[in-house]
Amino acid sequence: MCLGIPGEIVELNGDEPDLASVAVGGVRRMINIGLLEGEPLAPGDWVLIHVGFALSKIDEREAADALEFLESIGQAYADELDALRAAAPE
């Protein structure tokens, strides 16, 4: 819960500006980007996701490092990622 999962913005949602589709660990998910006010996001940008919400924008290098790290910690991340996959916020 405390470790953010990096996701790449794939598509913004014109009707619902709080929502965006992101690619996370090979799957596409809807997440809420409403907490990133004043940080213009575009497809290709990376964000750190906590419980379905993007909490910070990060650069691609940080995203890659964070992913590698999450993979190295094993089960805890696998569980979190499974939960994210199974969930479909919105």
Binding site: N32, V51, G52, F53, E80, A87, A88, P89, E90
Partner: peptide, 8 residues
């Protein structure tokens, strides 16, 4: 996974 799931 998310409070938004609870909302759904």
């Amino acid at each position: 996974y998310s409070p938004l799931d609870a909302l759904r």
